[in-house]
């Protein structure tokens, strides 16, 4: 594995590894909760980046895979009493399969049409699930309290969920790195730059795009299951929030799309900023507006994002930051 000798690989991996270990050593519930949210967004942003950053397809409704996967995993868990980790992985598999099917159709669209279609997919899924009785319709599903007994109570269950999330996010980032540096990833980058030219060079674009879409849907499905299990319930509004979907895009953009480390620090920075604005007495009421101003400034003046900017500015950093 050449990756093991690369700083660009170790930087995000160690970052997440040490972060999780730190939370496990301090063992505070509040720290865990905060880290859970942050790590979740790191995972979501990194998976979105596989499609958005590497392949160049702007998925506006990407949260649909968090919702569909989360719902499915939650359903396996609460209705069929499957173990948490297995349910989560199954949630991811369902997500990936649905992405494959949806992708076959919508990945034929390009640019803004694709973005619009993904919004439509998310809204259609939200509306459908609200009417889908096995998933509890508009009220959603709840965790059966007896599930916690297997973990030795709700407290340990939450810690276990955190550890699963931490590991999944770690794997997400590793996979993101591996894809970017693989032959498959080179094909994706070629599609991002010029899909027609890539096909003329032999890149089997329809298959590559669909695979990228499936990868970027798998992890949100797993993460969704863990998140809703932690919350104890899942309902359509939480699962298919278009707002959260766009926040994922913002995080990727903030850190630098198409880079491995970018979505990681983008997610942390965005959530950090949001947390600060929400708790600051001065900005509390205007937090959304200020976040908006901040986003606008980034889009207008630093469109490459933090890591992208550093890579552009200091060519030597290209070998270090990936």
């Amino acid at each position: 594995m050449k990756a093991l000798q690369r700083f660009g690989f170790w930087l995000p991996v160690l970052f997440i590894l040490i972060w999780g270990l730190y939370i496990l050593t301090v063992r505070q519930d509040s720290a865990r909760e905060q880290a859970f949210t942050l790590l979740m967004f790191v995972g979501l942003a990194s998976s979105l980046n596989i499609l958005l950053g590497y392949t160049g397809y702007v998925s506006f409704g990407h949260i649909v895979f968090f919702g569909l996967g989360g719902y499915s995993g939650f359903y396996f868990l609460s209705a069929h009493n499957l173990p948490l980790l297995l349910s989560a992985l199954l949630g991811g598999v369902v997500s990936a399969i649905l992405a494959g099917l949806i992708g076959l159709a919508v990945l034929r669209l390009r640019g803004a049409y694709f973005a619009l279609a993904t919004i439509g997919v998310n809204e259609a899924a939200r509306a459908f699930v609200s009417n889908f009785e096995p998933f509890g319709g508009a009220t959603g599903l709840f965790v059966n309290y007896s599930v916690y007994q297997g973990f030795g109570g709700p407290g340990p269950a939450l810690w276990r969920t955190f550890i699963y999330l931490w590991l999944i996010v770690l794997i997400t980032v590793i996979i993101s790195y591996v894809i970017k540096n693989s032959r498959f990833g080179l094909g994706l980058l070629a599609i991002r730059e010029d899909e027609d030219a890539a096909m003329v060079m032999g890149v089997k674009a329809p298959r590559a795009k669909t695979l990228a879409f499936m990868f970027s849907a798998f992890f949100p499905g797993v993460i969704g299951t863990l998140y809703f299990f932690k919350n104890g319930n899942v309902e359509p509004g939480d699962a298919f929030s278009l707002h959260m979907s766009i926040e994922m895009l913002v995080m990727v953009m903030l850190g630098g799309m198409g880079t491995v480390f970018g979505p990681v620090i983008g997610a942390v920075a965005y959530q950090g900023l949001r947390g600060f604005l929400l708790t600051s007495p001065l900005f509390k009421n205007l937090h959304l507006a200020i976040a908006g101003v901040f986003l606008l400034l980034i889009v207008l003046f630093v469109p490459a994002g933090a890591i992208g900017w550093l890579r552009e500015r200091f060519l030597k950093l290209r070998k270090v930051l990936e």
Binding site: L286, L288, A289, G292, L296
Partner: peptide, 8 residues
């Protein structure tokens, strides 16, 4: 971003 600013 404009959306967020107006809503905020």
């Amino acid at each position: 971003a404009v959306n967020m600013i107006i809503i905020g």
